[in-house]
Design a protein around this nucleic acid. Structure first.
Length: 581
DNA sequence: CTAGGGTTAG
């Protein structure tokens, strides 16, 4: 007996196991419904490829043996299933096959295929589908264009993402969200924040949960505290704080803007339940600020709250130990992680290696790297090289550098470190050799830059920057600082600069580091006694660390610098990192 | 014949 459509629908939803799907399949087959009703076939395919008990190879088999020409719906069922499977590229090849089939793809087929591209980070294929979308005449579909925009953003082509956005006939909140999130995740937080403001001021759209996540992420990256606080106010007004995801982003934002106490305040007074991510965010927040004991306290409390720490929790705790130099505690944590059946990844090993290395236990660090079950990444060898430099271990430095060279590293810092090790032992021939190797390879130097916010405006500085409107005043301030520093017995640490330039030039290269420019700008553009906040993309350099400590005394200012790894809070001549970083 | 598609924290 043929099943009525609605009855089939109910049955399909009731299938709990693959066996039941097969029963239904055989019924449709024997009753002839698979022949007579293409929609029934499509439904069945949908179930095979998309339910919790999906079996994609069964679905593909079913598809190939379909008694009638597969309908667009049948194709869609399969492409959707494949797009969400562990191997999404198969959806793309099915989509290609479809262009040679009698049934035309529709907006949904394209949407599923694009989702596959997003998951597989397949930019080339996305372009191919984009042109297909245009030829099919579905280029005005807002939902489809949002998916397309998102794919371009995820594969890193933000220009294309922006073009798609600009050409959309109509943009709803999700379209804005996709671009804001894309820019925020693509390290263009300034543009993300601009869009966030424009959407409110110009379009009259109301930011939703997703919008504020993008905005908060941008603020975290920029250290844009005032903007972040405004978004937090909006979150409270609109009761978006019922979402744990939003609360987590707020906590992260305050922590990364330097206000770990505010982050903790939000953590404590959350109206919704805390998730594992909430705890992990708070652990990381304290770690970032060098507050190891508080990080470890939270780590302990999550167990009391009935949550088992996961690998990320351990990473946060290890990071806290790392920033405070708690070697034994860190090693103990690592062991207990392994004991609780969690699998450490490269980052966990990296943390412990760094911890051991900086405590001078270079040999143990090396043993740790050698015993790792996975391939050690560049970061691990770099931290071993760093430790070897600190403790003057030439042999270990050579081992680490050799590995780095083998891995094709051409980062300036690696060469500089090795050269410094040789220089410390007055092995000038070796120093020369390293320099020559540097010249031969096209050594890359990641440009350092710093952000500083004044009255809601973000000012960005690069090393030796003269593009700021007030650059003359800034440089004058730095010269004033330089002369004052001399009386404090300061001498520039020119060893960290490796160029074939004279001593005085070396001093200047150091003198105009982006973080110094930002701090000087802070001194001239904020009121006396107000704290100065700076965000830097790289690790703070040794010389800047010394100089900023002195500046905090001379000008009686608290200066907070967030570098790539952590916060440094300079006050009355000392730093919260206790010179250990 | 029906519906199915977009943006989301550590």
């Amino acid at each position: 007996m043929a099943l009525a459509y609605y009855y089939l629908d109910i049955l399909l939803h009731k299938c709990r196991s693959f066996c039941q799907i097969k029963q239904l399949h055989s019924h449709l087959l024997t009753s002839g419904q698979l022949h007579s009703s293409p929609s029934a076939a499509a439904k069945l395919l949908d179930l095979c490829s998309h339910s919790p008990s999906a079996d994609l190879s069964y679905a593909a088999l079913l598809f190939r043996r379909l008694p009638t020409t597969p309908s667009t719906n049948a194709w869609n069922a399969l492409v959707r299933g494949l797009a969400r499977s562990p191997n999404p590229t198969r959806a793309i090849s099915w989509f290609r096959d479809m262009s040679r089939a009698p049934q035309k793809a529709d907006a949904l087929t394209c949407s599923f295929a694009l989702q596959a591209c997003a998951r597989a980070l397949a930019g080339f294929e996305a372009r191919e589908i984009h042109s297909r979308v245009v030829r099919l005449g579905v280029g005005a579909d807002v939902l489809l264009m949002t998916t397309l925009l998102d794919v371009y953003a995820k594969v890193g082509d933000l220009e294309c993402a922006r073009n798609v956005f600009d050409e959309m006939p109509r943009r709803d909140i999700a379209a804005w969200n996709a671009l804001i999130a894309g820019l925020a995740q693509g390290s263009r937080p300034g543009e993300a924040l601009d869009l966030f403001r424009r959407l409110r001021e110009e379009e009259g759209l109301r930011p939703n949960e997703v919008t504020v996540l993008g905005g908060l992420s941008a603020c975290s990256q920029l250290g844009a505290f005032r903007e972040g606080e405004k978004i937090h106010d909006y979150v409270m007004e609109e009761r978006l704080d019922m979402s744990v995801i939003v609360c987590n982003a707020v906590i992260d934002m305050y922590a990364k803007c330097g206000f770990v106490e505010k982050a903790f305040g939000v953590f404590r007074s959350m109206r919704c339940g805390k998730s594992l991510v909430t705890w992990n965010t708070m652990i990381m927040a304290f770690a970032l600020h060098g507050e190891a004991s508080k990080a470890l306290e939270i780590f302990g409390q999550m167990r009391e709250a009935g949550l088992e720490p996961d690998a990320v929790s351990y990473l946060g705790a290890l990071c806290a130990c790392n920033h405070a130099g708690l070697v034994d505690e860190g090693v103990r944590l690592f062991d207990s992680m392994v004991g609780s059946c969690l699998v450490p990844n490269v980052k966990h090993f990296g943390s412990v290696v760094d911890l051991l290395g900086r405590a001078g236990r270079v040999e143990e660090a090396y043993k740790m790297i050698s015993s790792m079950p996975m391939v050690p990444d560049v970061v691990l060898w770099q931290s071993l090289l760093g430790a070897s430099k600190t403790y003057g271990d030439v042999e270990m430095a050579e081992i680490a550098s050799r590995k780095l060279m083998e891995m094709g590293s051409n980062s300036c810092g690696d060469f500089v470190l090795l050269s410094n090790v040789y220089a410390a032992h007055e092995r000038w021939d070796d120093v020369r050799r390293v320099r020559e190797a540097m010249k031969k390879r096209d050594v890359k130097k990641i440009p350092g830059f710093s952000y500083m916010e004044v009255d809601g405006v973000i000012h960005k500085f690069v090393n030796g920057d003269q593009s700021h409107a007030k650059w003359r005043e800034i440089y004058a301030k730095l010269d004033e600082i330089k002369s004052k520093l001399k009386s404090y017995g300061y001498e520039a640490k020119t060893k960290v600069v490796l160029h074939d330039i004279g001593e005085e030039d070396k001093e200047n290269a150091l003198c105009y580091h982006s973080e110094k420019l930002a701090v000087a700008f802070g001194l001239i553009s904020t009121s006396e006694g107000a704290p100065i906040q700076v965000i830097k993309n790289l690790r703070i350099c040794e010389d800047c660390h010394v100089v900023i400590k002195l500046i905090s005394t001379i000008f009686s200012r608290e200066i907070i610098v967030r570098d790539r790894a952590r916060f440094h809070r300079f006050k009355e001549g000392s730093c919260s990192c206790k010179d250990y970083w």
